[in-house]
Design a protein around this nucleic acid. Structure first.
Lengths: 230, 230
DNA sequence: ATTGATTATTTTGTCAACAATCGAGATGTG
DNA sequence: CACATCTCGATTGTTGACAAAATAATCAAT
């Protein structure tokens, strides 16, 4: 029933995590236990445990006797995430310039060159994925397990959760040029420059986000909180 | 049976979290379900859910059909944590200098003055608590809920987990002087200085940690990992 | 005596049923 | 008509039992 070690909880956790960070489950959605359990073809027990794991990672919020909902990130929370990510991605770039193997550097360079050829003509969608991949590899290359876990597992997930709404079409070219400069710094093993460029890269993304209208429901959440209802 | 909203899972989670970060549960300890369930006077269901929450927060590690153990932090992992905390605590100090209310600043100042009077004569133990309280208030004063959650909930917990072993008796006076300088910077609303001082404060702690012999079992874990057994 | 396979026991994973709690709609009252 | 209360339905919290897997113990063979 459980092929090769993977338990039901693991499977459900993975699927739900993906559905949340990919935006298929809207922020604030209620996750009824009975419904989800039947959808996954399991009992409520394993499902609840998977939800508890998501709760521990801050992707869902459970209120006693009321059920669990997908976390609703307010504009303020998003800005906090960007502020943190600005520092941590910078650190990752610095460590990557120090610790990445030559093979990893070459592979990343190849990835960027490929994006340059295929991504320029078309829409922004492949660039979004390319962007995710780029940052993922930097985190990987930092050789810091905890840092990679923080950036890829927690922070980046939550940001991507909202990125799908705020189309960041403007600035995609600038973003790509940032990436090019960053990998040049890494190739030169210039730690300080890599950190600076990456920090500024995130800072620019935050600034771009700051100017977006942000017509989301989370604004309503903010209003409620400010009014003292939550 | 459940007085006012707090469910069994919440209670167990809180107790276990405290027991882990306070060192009462040694790193790598196995947490048998049946035993713990009887100790808490509940069934295995809620206990497992609490463990799943801890798993999501990275405080325990579960291997399928083998049980859950308290996370064993290697020396390398500790250093990674210090590296991250250096940046994040600096950010917290900068934001605290910007966002802390006058009351919070005054209260923090009072706390330090009190420590100065009561803590100088005696052993280092109250200073450890004072240190935790100091950093907690800075994180709180940053007014960034995510940052506070990261520092207090995850990073600081894990570091305190090992702090109890590495007696940081040397440098306690220097640490206290650092705190004094930091609050002065916050009182002056000098964001850059507060960030710099706090970063250096953590950096010094890391350097101190780096020179400790570290006679722990996690070294064995490191050796095993390097040998490719895990 | 050590190694290997095999059984036994313990521990974990899952399930279905029960109890407790909350929310919505109905009902009665000012 | 507004408002408070009550009842009922639905959802969550908890439990004990059962199935599956892994560790521990047993024993035979070299």
């Amino acid at each position: 029933m459980c092929p090769s070690g993977e338990t039901h909880v693991d499977r459900i956790f993975t699927v739900l995590e993906h559905d949340i960070v990919s935006g298929q489950l809207a922020m604030g959605s209620k996750l009824g236990e009975e419904l989800l359990a039947s959808r996954f073809g399991v009992s409520r027990g394993p499902l609840r445990e998977a939800l508890r794991r998501l709760e521990g990672r801050g992707l869902v919020i459970r209120t006693a006797h009321a059920g669990v909902r997908v976390v609703a990130l307010s504009r303020k929370a998003l800005l906090e995430l960007y502020e943190i990510r600005e520092l941590l991605e910078g650190l990752a770039a610095r460590l990557a310039a120090r610790n990445m193997s030559e093979e990893e550097v070459a592979s990343l360079r190849a990835l960027l060159d490929e994006d340059l050829n295929s991504g320029l003509r078309s829409d922004a969608y492949p660039l979004v994925f390319g962007d995710a991949d780029f940052h993922y590899r930097i985190a990987e290359g930092s050789k810091s397990v905890r840092l990679k876990q923080l950036l890829c597992g927690d922070l980046y997930s939550l940001i991507r959760l909202c990125r799908f709404k705020t189309a960041h079409v403007p600035g995609q070219m600038q973003s790509f040029r940032d990436h090019m400069r960053i990998i040049e710094a890494i190739e030169d093993r210039d730690e300080a420059l890599a950190e600076f460029l990456m920090s500024r890269h995130i800072s620019a993304a935050r600034a771009r986000f700051l100017t977006t209208p942000f017509n989301e429901a989370s604004d309503a959440v903010d209003s409620l909180k400010e009014a003292g209802f939550a």
